[in-house]
């Protein structure tokens, strides 16, 4: 009973906040609605027993991706009039894409219902220790049977890292306030100070 109630609560909130993401005028509000959507999606994940995925949704999407979105949105100086003009211009294209996606969804579900496809049949070597928590089960499969995909994910992350630097990093030469800690530590009184005994009226050469 509670599970059903919780499902409808989360599902309704996901849909409502997803609609608000599109409808909100202020992009910052959109991102905040998106966070609410992620949060409720995590709730749905818990309901189907995928607690690790739920935690990942919160840690990665809410904790990192949405922060990035928020930064980007705050950084942009957005001209709303221009955005709306784009909305009218791109509206037919958007409708077309939505129709294609809907058609694909219908085909996909139809084909799956017809029983012609067998999706995600495990090789059988996986599926270790069923009593383990699902975090451990994911690990046991991912790092033994899908090592190649896992390493490929690593390469993708590397590409993303390099891409981010190439796109956003401006290298400034001899920047102000750059601290060289080893130089600071190496410095000793003998090098840093000199004793001078100037004669009266002569001054000091520095």
């Amino acid at each position: 009973m509670i599970q059903t109630l919780a499902f409808y609560l989360f599902a309704a909130l996901v849909i409502a906040s997803a609609v608000m993401v599109i409808m909100a005028r202020n992009p910052v509000h959109s991102v905040l609605w998106l966070i609410l959507a992620f949060f409720n999606a995590a709730g749905l994940m818990v309901l189907v027993g995928a607690e690790f995925i739920a935690a990942l949704l919160l840690i990665v999407y809410v904790g990192a991706v949405a922060v990035l979105f928020l930064f980007v949105v705050m950084m942009l100086d957005i001209d709303f009039a221009e955005l709306r003009a784009g909305f009218v211009k791109n509206f037919p294209l958007g409708i077309a894409i939505a129709l294609v996606l809907a058609a694909e969804l219908i085909f996909g579900i139809g084909a799956y219902q017809a029983g012609q496809l067998e999706l995600g049949v495990a090789s059988g070597v996986a599926a270790p220790a069923l009593d383990a928590s699902n975090t451990a089960s994911i690990g046991a499969v991912l790092y033994r049977d899908y090592v190649f995909l896992f390493e490929a994910a690593g390469i993708i992350l590397l590409v993303a890292m390099v891409g981010a630097i190439v796109l956003t990093h401006r290298r400034t030469e001899n920047a102000r306030g750059q601290q060289d800690i080893s130089r600071q530590v190496r410095r000793n009184p003998d090098e840093a100070t000199v004793m001078k005994q100037p004669e009266v009226g002569r001054g000091v050469d520095l």
Partner: peptide, 25 residues
């Protein structure tokens, strides 16, 4: 007493950024 208690704490504490950013903005 959940299996992923530590991950839950990590996830929730990563949310505390939002209170700060929202108030500042």
């Amino acid at each position: 007493d959940i299996n992923i208690g530590l991950l839950y704490i990590l996830a929730i504490s990563s949310l505390s950024v939002y209170g700060v950013v929202m108030s500042g903005w």
